[in-house]
Computed example of a mutant assay.
Amino acid sequence: MPFVTELTFRRLASAAPRMIAGAPRATATSTLQSRYLSSTVPRAKTVTETAKDTLKTVDRAVSDKLVDGINVGSAMASKVKEVSQDIADGTATATGKAQQMRNEAEAKGNELKHDAEVKGQDVKESAKDKASQAAEKTKQAADGVKSRM
């Protein structure tokens, strides 16, 4: 520690005449402040954190698909209301149009349900793979520590 203190005093002493002579103060301080010392190691994610992140991703993907299905359902409901208004008005073509809209709504609902299930399975499998990889790495690290002892 005495070496660092001595070095600091030397720098201050050599900077003092320049500061008095009208040199900008930032020059002297930036020389002292530009040197940092860090002894911390970046922290890697734990298996638990990785699993949580993966599950959050799965949850978000499934939620997005469900919201899409709800939005389509409400849009179809408004179209069905329009069609039922046509039926109430006595339009002869309304029956065919209502049936067509019902069929479209059912097909779209089935399609979105299938997409959500497929996406959920894909993300679930991905989460399992990542969890097993993390568990394997943890096991290898534990074995490495045991072998060193």
Rank of each mutant, 00 (worst) to 15 (best):
V62N: 02
K79R: 15
K130T: 07
G69Y: 11
K108A: 00
T40L: 11
M1W: 12
S132I: 10
P17S: 06
S147W: 06
N103T: 14
E106S: 06
M101T: 14
A92V: 08
M149D: 05
R43V: 09
R35K: 12
S147Y: 06
T27G: 13
K56F: 12
S84N: 15
R60I: 03
R102G: 04
T57N: 09
T91N: 15
T57R: 08
N103Y: 04
A94C: 01
E125K: 10
R18I: 00
I87S: 11
K137C: 08
T50C: 13
M149C: 12
T54Q: 15
G96W: 00
M19Q: 08
M101I: 14
S84F: 15
V72K: 01
K146E: 14
M19G: 07
K128P: 13
Q99W: 05
L37Q: 14
K119G: 04
T8P: 12
G109M: 02
L66R: 13
D86I: 05
T50Y: 01
K119I: 01
R18G: 11
Q33V: 05
A51L: 12
V145P: 02
E49Q: 06
V47F: 01
T8N: 13
F9L: 14
D53E: 05
A13N: 05
D143K: 00
A142M: 06
K124W: 09
S78D: 14
T31G: 10
T93K: 03
E104Y: 03
L37E: 14
K97T: 09
Q100I: 02
A23E: 09
P17A: 03
N110H: 10
V67D: 07
